[in-house]
Deep mutational scan, measured.
Amino acid sequence: MQRVNMIMAESPGLITICLLGYLLSAECTVFLDHENANKILNRPKRYNSGKLEEFVQGNLERECMEEKCSFEEAREVFENTERTTEFWKQYVDGDQCESNPCLNGGSCKDDINSYECWCPFGFEGKNCELDVTCNIKNGRCEQFCKNSADNKVVCSCTEGYRLAENQKSCEPAVPFPCGRVSVSQTSKLTRAETVFPDVDYVNSTEAETILDNITQSTQSFNDFTRVVGGEDAKPGQFPWQVVLNGKVDAFCGGSIVNEKWIVTAAHCVETGVKITVVAGEHNIEETEHTEQKRNVIRIIPHHNYNAAINKYNHDIALLELDEPLVLNSYVTPICIADKEYTNIFLKFGSGYVSGWGRVFHKGRSALVLQYLRVPLVDRATCLRSTKFTIYNNMFCAGFHEGGRDSCQGDSGGPHVTEVEGTSFLTGIISWGEECAMKGKYGIYTKVSRYVNWIKEKTKLT
Protein backbone atom coordinates (compact mmCIF):
# COMPACT_ATOMS: atom_id res chain seq x y z
CA MET A 1 0.00 0.00 0.00
CA GLN A 2 2.91 2.29 0.80
CA ARG A 3 4.31 1.55 -2.65
CA VAL A 4 1.05 2.46 -4.39
CA ASN A 5 0.85 5.71 -2.55
CA MET A 6 4.36 6.56 -3.61
CA ILE A 7 3.52 5.85 -7.28
CA MET A 8 0.38 8.09 -7.17
CA ALA A 9 2.32 10.85 -5.56
CA GLU A 10 5.13 10.63 -8.04
CA SER A 11 2.97 10.08 -11.23
CA PRO A 12 -0.30 12.12 -11.10
CA GLY A 13 -0.50 12.26 -14.90
CA LEU A 14 -0.66 8.53 -15.06
CA ILE A 15 -3.66 8.48 -12.78
CA THR A 16 -5.51 11.04 -14.94
CA ILE A 17 -4.95 9.01 -18.10
CA CYS A 18 -6.28 5.89 -16.44
CA LEU A 19 -9.45 7.58 -15.24
CA LEU A 20 -10.14 9.11 -18.67
CA GLY A 21 -9.78 5.74 -20.34
CA TYR A 22 -12.25 4.24 -17.92
CA LEU A 23 -14.87 6.92 -18.61
CA LEU A 24 -14.57 6.66 -22.39
CA SER A 25 -15.04 2.92 -22.22
CA ALA A 26 -18.15 3.21 -20.07
CA GLU A 27 -21.72 3.27 -21.73
CA CYS A 28 -23.42 6.70 -21.61
CA THR A 29 -26.95 6.55 -20.17
CA VAL A 30 -27.53 10.31 -19.44
CA PHE A 31 -27.91 11.70 -23.03
CA LEU A 32 -30.30 10.49 -25.76
CA ASP A 33 -29.08 9.73 -29.18
CA HIS A 34 -29.59 12.25 -32.04
CA GLU A 35 -32.73 10.61 -33.50
CA ASN A 36 -34.62 10.35 -30.19
CA ALA A 37 -33.63 13.83 -29.14
CA ASN A 38 -35.29 15.28 -32.27
CA LYS A 39 -38.56 13.50 -31.43
CA ILE A 40 -38.78 15.40 -28.15
CA LEU A 41 -37.78 18.80 -29.58
CA ASN A 42 -39.90 18.55 -32.71
CA ARG A 43 -39.88 22.30 -33.69
CA PRO A 44 -40.19 23.51 -37.31
CA LYS A 45 -37.15 25.10 -38.75
CA ARG A 46 -37.35 28.89 -39.01
CA TYR A 47 -37.00 30.73 -42.31
CA ASN A 48 -33.34 31.55 -41.85
CA SER A 49 -32.43 28.72 -39.55
CA GLY A 50 -28.72 28.25 -39.33
CA LYS A 51 -27.96 31.78 -40.52
CA LEU A 52 -27.26 35.00 -38.70
CA GLU A 53 -30.46 37.16 -38.68
CA GLU A 54 -28.46 40.35 -39.10
CA PHE A 55 -27.54 39.26 -42.63
CA VAL A 56 -31.01 38.25 -43.99
CA GLN A 57 -34.16 40.15 -44.95
CA GLY A 58 -36.69 40.55 -42.12
CA ASN A 59 -39.79 38.36 -41.89
CA LEU A 60 -43.09 39.93 -40.69
CA GLU A 61 -44.25 36.81 -38.86
CA ARG A 62 -40.94 36.31 -37.09
CA GLU A 63 -40.32 39.95 -36.30
CA CYS A 64 -43.78 41.21 -35.26
CA MET A 65 -46.29 38.36 -34.94
CA GLU A 66 -44.43 35.79 -32.82
CA GLU A 67 -43.43 38.58 -30.48
CA LYS A 68 -43.90 42.34 -30.24
CA CYS A 69 -41.53 44.22 -32.47
CA SER A 70 -40.16 47.73 -32.59
CA PHE A 71 -40.54 50.20 -35.43
CA GLU A 72 -36.94 49.48 -36.47
CA GLU A 73 -37.62 45.75 -36.65
CA ALA A 74 -40.71 46.36 -38.77
CA ARG A 75 -38.61 48.65 -40.97
CA GLU A 76 -36.29 45.71 -41.66
CA VAL A 77 -39.26 43.80 -43.13
CA PHE A 78 -40.63 46.53 -45.42
CA GLU A 79 -37.32 48.25 -46.18
CA ASN A 80 -39.41 51.38 -46.82
CA THR A 81 -40.30 54.05 -44.27
CA GLU A 82 -43.66 54.98 -45.83
CA ARG A 83 -44.92 51.37 -45.96
CA THR A 84 -43.61 50.75 -42.47
CA THR A 85 -45.50 53.77 -41.16
CA GLU A 86 -48.77 52.56 -42.70
CA PHE A 87 -48.28 49.13 -41.09
CA TRP A 88 -47.26 50.65 -37.76
CA LYS A 89 -50.46 52.75 -37.46
CA GLN A 90 -52.63 49.63 -37.48
CA TYR A 91 -50.13 47.43 -35.59
CA VAL A 92 -49.97 49.71 -32.56
CA ASP A 93 -53.70 50.35 -31.88
CA GLY A 94 -55.81 48.66 -34.57
CA ASP A 95 -57.53 50.09 -37.65
CA GLN A 96 -59.32 53.36 -36.77
CA CYS A 97 -60.99 53.31 -40.22
CA GLU A 98 -62.77 50.01 -39.60
CA SER A 99 -66.02 51.82 -38.66
CA ASN A 100 -65.99 53.86 -41.91
CA PRO A 101 -66.18 57.26 -40.17
CA CYS A 102 -65.77 59.37 -43.33
CA LEU A 103 -69.03 60.64 -44.84
CA ASN A 104 -70.06 61.74 -48.34
CA GLY A 105 -67.64 59.44 -50.13
CA GLY A 106 -64.58 60.46 -48.10
CA SER A 107 -61.53 58.15 -47.99
CA CYS A 108 -60.22 57.14 -44.56
CA LYS A 109 -56.51 56.95 -43.68
CA ASP A 110 -55.61 55.24 -40.40
CA ASP A 111 -53.33 56.91 -37.85
CA ILE A 112 -52.14 56.15 -34.33
CA ASN A 113 -55.12 56.66 -31.98
CA SER A 114 -56.75 58.67 -34.76
CA TYR A 115 -57.67 58.78 -38.45
CA GLU A 116 -57.77 61.28 -41.29
CA CYS A 117 -60.57 61.71 -43.85
CA TRP A 118 -59.64 62.72 -47.38
CA CYS A 119 -62.78 64.53 -48.52
CA PRO A 120 -64.11 64.77 -52.09
CA PHE A 121 -64.62 68.16 -53.68
CA GLY A 122 -67.36 70.10 -51.95
CA PHE A 123 -66.93 68.67 -48.45
CA GLU A 124 -64.67 69.24 -45.48
CA GLY A 125 -64.55 68.68 -41.72
CA LYS A 126 -63.25 65.86 -39.51
CA ASN A 127 -65.61 63.37 -41.19
CA CYS A 128 -66.30 65.28 -44.46
CA GLU A 129 -69.64 66.29 -42.96
CA LEU A 130 -69.49 69.97 -43.96
CA ASP A 131 -70.71 71.13 -47.37
CA VAL A 132 -68.51 73.83 -48.86
CA THR A 133 -70.17 74.25 -52.24
CA CYS A 134 -73.70 75.06 -53.34
CA ASN A 135 -73.41 72.58 -56.21
CA ILE A 136 -74.07 69.61 -53.92
CA LYS A 137 -77.53 69.41 -52.35
CA ASN A 138 -77.75 73.20 -52.34
CA GLY A 139 -75.01 73.26 -49.69
CA ARG A 140 -77.59 71.74 -47.30
CA CYS A 141 -79.27 75.15 -47.25
CA GLU A 142 -83.04 75.00 -46.86
CA GLN A 143 -83.70 77.83 -49.30
CA PHE A 144 -80.88 79.80 -50.93
CA CYS A 145 -77.16 79.10 -51.14
CA LYS A 146 -74.22 81.26 -52.16
CA ASN A 147 -70.51 80.50 -52.28
CA SER A 148 -68.41 83.10 -50.48
CA ALA A 149 -65.10 84.47 -51.74
CA ASP A 150 -63.23 81.64 -49.97
CA ASN A 151 -65.62 79.08 -51.51
CA LYS A 152 -67.59 78.49 -48.32
CA VAL A 153 -71.35 77.90 -48.26
CA VAL A 154 -73.44 80.85 -47.09
CA CYS A 155 -77.15 80.11 -46.65
CA SER A 156 -79.91 82.71 -46.78
CA CYS A 157 -83.69 82.90 -46.71
CA THR A 158 -86.44 84.68 -48.58
CA GLU A 159 -88.12 87.77 -47.15
CA GLY A 160 -90.03 87.05 -43.95
CA TYR A 161 -87.63 84.33 -42.83
CA ARG A 162 -84.32 84.25 -40.96
CA LEU A 163 -81.58 81.66 -40.62
CA ALA A 164 -81.98 79.26 -37.73
CA GLU A 165 -79.20 78.57 -35.25
CA ASN A 166 -77.74 75.85 -37.47
CA GLN A 167 -77.21 78.46 -40.23
CA LYS A 168 -78.90 76.10 -42.72
CA SER A 169 -82.62 76.08 -41.96
CA CYS A 170 -85.02 78.99 -42.32
CA GLU A 171 -87.53 79.96 -39.65
CA PRO A 172 -90.36 82.51 -39.79
CA ALA A 173 -89.42 86.04 -38.79
CA VAL A 174 -92.97 87.44 -39.17
CA PRO A 175 -96.37 86.12 -38.04
CA PHE A 176 -97.49 85.05 -41.53
CA PRO A 177 -94.47 84.46 -43.76
CA CYS A 178 -94.89 83.82 -47.46
CA GLY A 179 -95.54 80.37 -48.83
CA ARG A 180 -96.45 78.75 -45.51
CA VAL A 181 -99.67 76.93 -44.67
CA SER A 182 -100.52 77.82 -41.07
CA VAL A 183 -104.10 76.58 -40.61
CA SER A 184 -103.76 73.69 -38.18
CA GLN A 185 -106.23 71.29 -39.80
CA THR A 186 -104.59 71.70 -43.21
CA SER A 187 -100.98 71.48 -42.11
CA LYS A 188 -101.27 67.68 -42.25
CA LEU A 189 -102.21 67.99 -45.91
CA THR A 190 -99.05 69.84 -46.85
CA ARG A 191 -97.73 68.38 -50.06
CA ALA A 192 -94.63 66.23 -50.18
CA GLU A 193 -91.51 68.27 -49.52
CA THR A 194 -89.05 68.71 -52.33
CA VAL A 195 -85.42 67.99 -51.50
CA PHE A 196 -82.59 69.64 -53.42
CA PRO A 197 -80.79 67.37 -55.87
CA ASP A 198 -77.19 67.85 -56.94
CA VAL A 199 -77.35 70.86 -59.26
CA ASP A 200 -74.90 72.50 -61.62
CA TYR A 201 -75.51 76.05 -60.41
CA VAL A 202 -73.15 77.55 -62.92
CA ASN A 203 -75.38 76.45 -65.79
CA SER A 204 -78.71 76.44 -63.97
CA THR A 205 -80.19 79.40 -65.80
CA GLU A 206 -81.12 78.27 -69.26
CA ALA A 207 -79.49 80.06 -72.15
CA GLU A 208 -82.77 81.08 -73.69
CA THR A 209 -83.53 84.05 -75.88
CA ILE A 210 -86.82 85.78 -75.25
CA LEU A 211 -88.43 86.35 -78.60
CA ASP A 212 -89.38 89.95 -77.89
CA ASN A 213 -89.16 91.20 -81.45
CA ILE A 214 -91.18 88.50 -83.19
CA THR A 215 -94.23 89.84 -84.95
CA GLN A 216 -96.99 87.37 -85.48
CA SER A 217 -100.61 87.57 -86.50
CA THR A 218 -103.15 86.94 -83.80
CA GLN A 219 -103.79 83.22 -83.46
CA SER A 220 -107.25 81.82 -82.89
CA PHE A 221 -107.11 79.66 -79.77
CA ASN A 222 -109.95 77.52 -78.49
CA ASP A 223 -110.74 77.91 -74.80
CA PHE A 224 -107.32 79.29 -74.04
CA THR A 225 -108.35 81.10 -70.87
CA ARG A 226 -107.59 77.91 -69.09
CA VAL A 227 -108.68 72.31 -62.46
CA VAL A 228 -109.84 69.19 -64.22
CA GLY A 229 -109.33 65.98 -62.26
CA GLY A 230 -108.20 67.87 -59.16
CA GLU A 231 -109.17 67.64 -55.51
CA ASP A 232 -111.07 69.94 -53.18
CA ALA A 233 -108.67 72.11 -51.24
CA LYS A 234 -109.15 72.61 -47.51
CA PRO A 235 -109.73 76.14 -46.18
CA GLY A 236 -106.35 77.86 -45.89
CA GLN A 237 -104.47 75.20 -47.85
CA PHE A 238 -103.55 77.71 -50.60
CA PRO A 239 -103.75 81.03 -48.74
CA TRP A 240 -102.00 82.96 -51.55
CA GLN A 241 -104.78 82.15 -54.04
CA VAL A 242 -107.25 84.91 -54.95
CA VAL A 243 -110.26 85.00 -57.26
CA LEU A 244 -110.99 87.84 -59.70
CA ASN A 245 -114.57 89.04 -60.19
CA GLY A 246 -115.53 91.40 -63.01
CA LYS A 247 -118.23 91.19 -65.64
CA VAL A 248 -118.63 87.64 -64.36
CA ASP A 249 -117.54 86.13 -61.08
CA ALA A 250 -114.47 83.90 -60.84
CA PHE A 251 -113.37 84.68 -64.39
CA CYS A 252 -109.68 84.34 -63.45
CA GLY A 253 -107.37 83.69 -60.54
CA GLY A 254 -104.28 85.33 -59.13
CA SER A 255 -101.65 85.19 -56.37
CA ILE A 256 -100.86 87.52 -53.48
CA VAL A 257 -97.42 89.14 -53.85
CA ASN A 258 -97.83 91.28 -50.73
CA GLU A 259 -100.56 93.22 -48.93
CA LYS A 260 -101.05 95.63 -51.84
CA TRP A 261 -100.28 93.63 -54.98
CA ILE A 262 -101.63 90.66 -56.94
CA VAL A 263 -99.96 88.88 -59.87
CA THR A 264 -102.13 87.34 -62.59
CA ALA A 265 -102.22 86.68 -66.35
CA ALA A 266 -102.27 89.74 -68.61
CA HIS A 267 -104.95 88.25 -70.86
CA CYS A 268 -107.33 88.19 -67.87
CA VAL A 269 -107.59 91.96 -67.51
CA GLU A 270 -109.12 94.62 -69.73
CA THR A 271 -108.64 98.34 -69.49
CA GLY A 272 -111.75 100.05 -68.15
CA VAL A 273 -113.31 96.92 -66.65
CA LYS A 274 -113.79 97.06 -62.89
CA ILE A 275 -112.14 94.15 -61.10
CA THR A 276 -112.68 93.01 -57.53
CA VAL A 277 -110.15 90.75 -55.83
CA VAL A 278 -111.33 88.30 -53.17
CA ALA A 279 -108.64 86.80 -50.91
CA GLY A 280 -109.26 84.10 -48.32
CA GLU A 281 -111.92 82.53 -50.55
CA HIS A 282 -112.73 78.82 -50.43
CA ASN A 283 -116.33 78.17 -51.52
CA ILE A 284 -117.43 80.92 -53.89
CA GLU A 285 -121.10 80.36 -53.09
CA GLU A 286 -120.76 80.56 -49.32
CA THR A 287 -119.69 83.25 -46.89
CA GLU A 288 -117.08 81.68 -44.63
CA HIS A 289 -115.93 84.90 -42.89
CA THR A 290 -112.37 84.42 -44.09
CA GLU A 291 -112.86 86.47 -47.27
CA GLN A 292 -111.35 89.91 -47.87
CA LYS A 293 -112.55 91.95 -50.86
CA ARG A 294 -110.51 94.72 -52.46
CA ASN A 295 -110.93 96.86 -55.55
CA VAL A 296 -108.21 97.08 -58.20
CA ILE A 297 -107.03 100.66 -58.68
CA ARG A 298 -104.19 100.03 -61.14
CA ILE A 299 -103.34 97.39 -63.72
CA ILE A 300 -99.74 96.97 -64.93
CA PRO A 301 -99.33 94.47 -67.78
CA HIS A 302 -95.75 93.55 -68.61
CA HIS A 303 -94.24 96.17 -70.91
CA ASN A 304 -93.65 93.54 -73.64
CA TYR A 305 -97.23 92.29 -73.59
CA ASN A 306 -99.21 93.11 -76.73
CA ALA A 307 -102.53 91.30 -77.11
CA ALA A 308 -102.87 92.56 -80.70
CA ILE A 309 -99.79 90.55 -81.67
CA ASN A 310 -100.11 87.56 -79.35
CA LYS A 311 -102.55 87.24 -76.48
CA TYR A 312 -100.37 84.85 -74.49
CA ASN A 313 -96.79 86.03 -75.00
CA HIS A 314 -95.49 87.74 -71.83
CA ASP A 315 -98.80 86.82 -70.24
CA ILE A 316 -98.33 88.44 -66.85
CA ALA A 317 -99.80 91.51 -65.11
CA LEU A 318 -99.82 93.15 -61.69
CA LEU A 319 -102.90 94.49 -59.89
CA GLU A 320 -102.65 97.20 -57.24
CA LEU A 321 -105.31 97.10 -54.51
CA ASP A 322 -107.11 100.08 -53.01
CA GLU A 323 -106.50 98.90 -49.43
CA PRO A 324 -103.86 96.55 -48.03
CA LEU A 325 -104.90 93.01 -47.25
CA VAL A 326 -104.75 91.90 -43.62
CA LEU A 327 -102.47 88.89 -43.53
CA ASN A 328 -103.60 85.84 -41.59
CA SER A 329 -103.76 82.05 -41.94
CA TYR A 330 -106.20 82.36 -44.86
CA VAL A 331 -104.55 85.33 -46.58
CA THR A 332 -100.80 84.84 -47.04
CA PRO A 333 -98.41 85.92 -49.85
CA ILE A 334 -96.67 83.44 -52.12
CA CYS A 335 -92.87 83.46 -52.00
CA ILE A 336 -90.98 84.77 -55.03
CA ALA A 337 -87.31 83.84 -55.30
CA ASP A 338 -84.71 85.43 -57.57
CA LYS A 339 -84.42 84.46 -61.23
CA GLU A 340 -81.85 81.72 -60.69
CA TYR A 341 -83.66 79.94 -57.89
CA THR A 342 -87.11 80.29 -59.47
CA ASN A 343 -85.70 78.47 -62.48
CA ILE A 344 -84.07 75.83 -60.26
CA PHE A 345 -87.30 75.26 -58.35
CA LEU A 346 -89.22 74.81 -61.61
CA LYS A 347 -86.75 72.10 -62.64
CA PHE A 348 -87.59 70.10 -59.54
CA GLY A 349 -90.14 68.54 -61.86
CA SER A 350 -93.61 69.06 -60.43
CA GLY A 351 -95.74 71.86 -59.09
CA TYR A 352 -99.23 72.58 -57.82
CA VAL A 353 -101.92 74.50 -59.67
CA SER A 354 -105.15 75.72 -58.11
CA GLY A 355 -108.30 77.57 -59.08
CA TRP A 356 -112.08 77.65 -59.43
CA GLY A 357 -112.06 76.91 -63.16
CA ARG A 358 -114.19 74.41 -65.00
CA VAL A 359 -114.02 70.88 -63.64
CA PHE A 360 -114.22 69.47 -67.19
CA HIS A 361 -114.00 70.89 -70.72
CA LYS A 362 -116.95 73.23 -71.36
CA GLY A 363 -118.41 72.06 -68.06
CA ARG A 364 -119.46 73.88 -64.91
CA SER A 365 -117.06 75.90 -62.79
CA ALA A 366 -115.95 74.58 -59.42
CA LEU A 367 -117.55 75.98 -56.29
CA VAL A 368 -114.75 74.86 -53.97
CA LEU A 369 -111.12 75.68 -54.72
CA GLN A 370 -109.50 72.83 -56.65
CA TYR A 371 -105.84 71.84 -56.72
CA LEU A 372 -103.74 69.43 -58.74
CA ARG A 373 -100.13 68.33 -58.84
CA VAL A 374 -98.77 68.49 -62.38
CA PRO A 375 -95.41 67.25 -63.71
CA LEU A 376 -93.13 69.47 -65.77
CA VAL A 377 -92.98 68.44 -69.44
CA ASP A 378 -89.67 68.61 -71.29
CA ARG A 379 -89.49 71.29 -73.94
CA ALA A 380 -89.10 68.94 -76.90
CA THR A 381 -92.27 67.05 -75.97
CA CYS A 382 -94.04 70.33 -75.35
CA LEU A 383 -93.17 71.68 -78.81
CA ARG A 384 -94.30 68.47 -80.53
CA SER A 385 -97.66 68.54 -78.77
CA THR A 386 -99.02 71.66 -80.49
CA LYS A 387 -98.97 73.58 -83.75
CA PHE A 388 -98.91 76.86 -81.84
CA THR A 389 -95.77 78.75 -80.82
CA ILE A 390 -94.30 77.94 -77.42
CA TYR A 391 -92.03 80.85 -76.53
CA ASN A 392 -89.04 80.54 -74.22
CA ASN A 393 -90.95 82.44 -71.55
CA MET A 394 -93.51 79.61 -71.41
CA PHE A 395 -93.39 76.02 -70.17
CA CYS A 396 -95.64 72.96 -70.37
CA ALA A 397 -96.96 70.89 -67.49
CA GLY A 398 -99.53 68.13 -67.27
CA PHE A 399 -100.24 64.51 -68.17
CA HIS A 400 -99.89 62.95 -71.60
CA GLU A 401 -102.84 60.62 -70.97
CA GLY A 402 -105.10 63.59 -70.27
CA GLY A 403 -107.86 63.65 -67.68
CA ARG A 404 -106.17 66.17 -65.39
CA ASP A 405 -105.35 69.77 -66.20
CA SER A 406 -106.04 73.42 -65.49
CA CYS A 407 -109.05 74.77 -67.40
CA GLN A 408 -111.18 77.82 -68.16
CA GLY A 409 -111.41 80.13 -65.18
CA ASP A 410 -108.06 79.01 -63.74
CA SER A 411 -106.06 81.49 -65.85
CA GLY A 412 -103.88 83.84 -63.86
CA GLY A 413 -103.71 81.41 -60.97
CA PRO A 414 -100.48 80.08 -59.49
CA HIS A 415 -98.17 77.25 -60.41
CA VAL A 416 -96.14 76.77 -57.23
CA THR A 417 -93.25 74.54 -56.21
CA GLU A 418 -92.94 73.50 -52.60
CA VAL A 419 -89.39 73.66 -51.24
CA GLU A 420 -88.86 72.12 -47.81
CA GLY A 421 -92.35 73.14 -46.71
CA THR A 422 -92.34 76.63 -48.26
CA SER A 423 -94.08 77.31 -51.60
CA PHE A 424 -92.56 79.51 -54.31
CA LEU A 425 -94.27 80.91 -57.40
CA THR A 426 -92.83 79.24 -60.51
CA GLY A 427 -95.55 79.77 -63.11
CA ILE A 428 -98.85 81.44 -64.00
CA ILE A 429 -101.68 79.48 -65.62
CA SER A 430 -101.95 80.88 -69.15
CA TRP A 431 -103.48 78.75 -71.91
CA GLY A 432 -103.97 75.33 -73.49
CA GLU A 433 -105.88 73.44 -76.16
CA GLU A 434 -109.19 72.38 -74.64
CA CYS A 435 -108.76 70.94 -71.13
CA ALA A 436 -107.25 67.65 -70.01
CA MET A 437 -107.08 66.45 -73.61
CA LYS A 438 -104.84 63.44 -74.32
CA GLY A 439 -101.48 64.48 -75.75
CA LYS A 440 -102.04 68.14 -74.83
CA TYR A 441 -100.60 70.08 -71.93
CA GLY A 442 -101.28 73.21 -69.94
CA ILE A 443 -99.09 76.16 -70.93
CA TYR A 444 -97.73 78.44 -68.20
CA THR A 445 -95.91 81.75 -68.05
CA LYS A 446 -92.38 81.14 -66.77
CA VAL A 447 -92.10 83.38 -63.71
CA SER A 448 -88.29 83.19 -63.58
CA ARG A 449 -88.25 85.58 -66.57
CA TYR A 450 -90.18 88.24 -64.68
CA VAL A 451 -89.14 88.14 -61.02
CA ASN A 452 -87.03 91.30 -61.22
CA TRP A 453 -89.91 93.16 -62.85
CA ILE A 454 -92.37 91.88 -60.23
CA LYS A 455 -90.18 92.91 -57.31
CA GLU A 456 -89.42 96.32 -58.79
CA LYS A 457 -93.09 97.17 -59.38
CA THR A 458 -94.51 95.80 -56.13
CA LYS A 459 -92.22 97.44 -53.59
CA LEU A 460 -94.13 98.60 -50.53
CA THR A 461 -93.47 102.28 -49.74
Results as ranks from 00 to 15, higher is better:
residue 361 H to F: 08
residue 70 S to D: 07
residue 178 C to V: 01
residue 343 N to K: 05
residue 189 L to V: 13
residue 137 K to W: 07
residue 134 C to R: 03
residue 263 V to R: 00
residue 459 K to Y: 08
residue 5 N to L: 13
residue 215 T to D: 06
residue 99 S to R: 09
residue 119 C to G: 00
residue 32 L to A: 15
residue 308 A to C: 06
residue 251 F to H: 12
residue 216 Q to M: 12
residue 443 I to K: 03
residue 426 T to G: 00
residue 228 V to L: 08
residue 456 E to T: 11
residue 61 E to K: 06
residue 342 T to D: 03
residue 280 G to A: 03
residue 412 G to E: 03
residue 312 Y to E: 02
residue 315 D to W: 01
residue 363 G to Y: 08
residue 46 R to Y: 11
residue 85 T to K: 05
residue 182 S to K: 05
residue 87 F to C: 04
residue 38 N to S: 15
residue 386 T to F: 09
residue 154 V to A: 14
residue 91 Y to G: 15
residue 126 K to W: 05
residue 343 N to S: 14
residue 216 Q to G: 06
residue 453 W to H: 00
residue 229 G to K: 15
residue 319 L to W: 02
residue 158 T to D: 03
residue 184 S to G: 07
residue 345 F to D: 01
residue 431 W to S: 10
residue 150 D to V: 08
residue 8 M to P: 11
residue 257 V to E: 00
residue 227 V to G: 15
residue 417 T to D: 02
residue 18 C to W: 07
residue 111 D to C: 04
residue 397 A to L: 00
residue 44 P to G: 12
residue 290 T to F: 07
residue 108 C to A: 00
residue 54 E to A: 09
residue 29 T to H: 12
residue 450 Y to L: 01
residue 193 E to I: 15
residue 92 V to S: 14
residue 252 C to S: 00
residue 185 Q to M: 08
residue 159 E to A: 10
residue 177 P to L: 01
residue 133 T to P: 06
residue 344 I to Q: 09
residue 460 L to H: 09
residue 241 Q to N: 08
residue 408 Q to H: 15
residue 170 C to N: 01
residue 158 T to A: 10
residue 142 E to H: 06
residue 148 S to P: 07
residue 280 G to M: 02
residue 89 K to A: 10
residue 65 M to K: 09
residue 79 E to W: 11
residue 357 G to L: 06
residue 18 C to V: 11
residue 16 T to F: 14
residue 124 E to D: 02
residue 272 G to Q: 07
residue 268 C to N: 01
residue 396 C to D: 01
residue 351 G to S: 07
residue 327 L to F: 11
residue 353 V to I: 15
residue 344 I to M: 14
residue 312 Y to K: 06
residue 212 D to E: 13
residue 131 D to L: 08
residue 255 S to G: 06
residue 364 R to Q: 09
residue 91 Y to H: 15
residue 130 L to E: 12
residue 321 L to R: 00
residue 223 D to V: 07
residue 251 F to A: 09
residue 345 F to P: 01
residue 248 V to E: 08
residue 367 L to G: 14
residue 317 A to R: 01
residue 232 D to W: 10
residue 309 I to P: 04
residue 304 N to V: 03
residue 130 L to H: 13
residue 338 D to E: 07
residue 178 C to L: 01
residue 144 F to M: 04
residue 14 L to Q: 03
residue 353 V to F: 03
residue 372 L to I: 15
residue 271 T to R: 14
residue 443 I to T: 06
residue 41 L to M: 09
residue 332 T to S: 10
residue 50 G to E: 12
residue 221 F to G: 06
residue 142 E to M: 09
residue 72 E to T: 07
residue 446 K to S: 08
residue 359 V to H: 12
residue 271 T to F: 10
residue 49 S to R: 08
residue 424 F to P: 01
residue 456 E to F: 07
residue 405 D to H: 12
residue 174 V to C: 05
residue 192 A to W: 10
residue 117 C to M: 00
residue 413 G to M: 14
residue 247 K to L: 07
residue 148 S to C: 06
residue 199 V to P: 15
residue 68 K to F: 08
residue 124 E to I: 03
residue 420 E to H: 07
residue 277 V to S: 02
residue 375 P to F: 10
residue 27 E to R: 06
residue 110 D to T: 11
residue 230 G to D: 04
residue 448 S to R: 02
residue 127 N to H: 11
residue 91 Y to F: 09
residue 212 D to S: 10
residue 223 D to F: 10
residue 460 L to Q: 11
residue 71 F to E: 15
residue 138 N to G: 05
residue 107 S to E: 14
residue 62 R to F: 09
residue 5 N to E: 08
residue 150 D to F: 09
residue 352 Y to G: 04
residue 81 T to V: 12
residue 323 E to P: 04
residue 77 V to R: 13
residue 168 K to C: 06
residue 37 A to R: 10
residue 86 E to M: 13
residue 110 D to M: 09
residue 368 V to Q: 15
residue 164 A to N: 07
residue 56 V to C: 05
residue 250 A to E: 07
residue 127 N to W: 05
residue 34 H to P: 10
residue 172 P to H: 05
residue 60 L to M: 13
residue 438 K to C: 07
residue 156 S to N: 05
residue 124 E to H: 04
residue 126 K to S: 09
residue 336 I to E: 00
residue 208 E to S: 15
residue 325 L to T: 00
residue 345 F to I: 09
residue 26 A to M: 05
residue 374 V to F: 02
residue 395 F to C: 02
residue 387 K to H: 15
residue 95 D to R: 14
residue 305 Y to D: 01
residue 234 K to C: 03
residue 194 T to D: 12
residue 42 N to S: 10
residue 444 Y to P: 00
residue 67 E to N: 09
residue 198 D to R: 11
residue 70 S to H: 08
residue 310 N to C: 05
residue 297 I to D: 03
residue 207 A to P: 14
residue 371 Y to R: 13
residue 309 I to H: 11
residue 378 D to H: 07
residue 259 E to H: 06
residue 414 P to C: 10
residue 253 G to D: 04
residue 114 S to I: 04
residue 427 G to E: 01
residue 100 N to K: 09
residue 21 G to W: 06
residue 443 I to P: 02
residue 248 V to G: 14
residue 324 P to W: 02
residue 273 V to L: 14
residue 439 G to Q: 08
residue 120 P to L: 06
residue 315 D to L: 01
residue 177 P to I: 01
residue 387 K to L: 05
residue 397 A to C: 03
residue 404 R to A: 11
residue 207 A to E: 11
residue 175 P to C: 04
residue 80 N to F: 04
residue 3 R to N: 09
residue 216 Q to F: 09
residue 133 T to L: 07
residue 52 L to F: 15
residue 84 T to F: 04
residue 440 K to G: 11
residue 193 E to K: 10
residue 284 I to Q: 07
residue 149 A to M: 11
residue 327 L to K: 03
residue 319 L to V: 06
residue 249 D to V: 07
residue 166 N to I: 02
residue 119 C to Y: 00
residue 260 K to F: 08
residue 243 V to I: 14
residue 188 K to L: 07
residue 145 C to D: 00
residue 446 K to M: 05
residue 15 I to T: 05
residue 449 R to H: 15
residue 346 L to V: 06
residue 268 C to V: 00
residue 323 E to V: 14
residue 413 G to A: 13
residue 413 G to S: 14
residue 35 E to H: 05
residue 110 D to V: 05
residue 425 L to D: 01
residue 20 L to R: 02
residue 215 T to Y: 08
residue 362 K to S: 11
residue 86 E to Y: 06
residue 318 L to D: 00
residue 113 N to L: 07
residue 434 E to H: 13
residue 29 T to A: 08
residue 262 I to F: 02
residue 188 K to D: 06
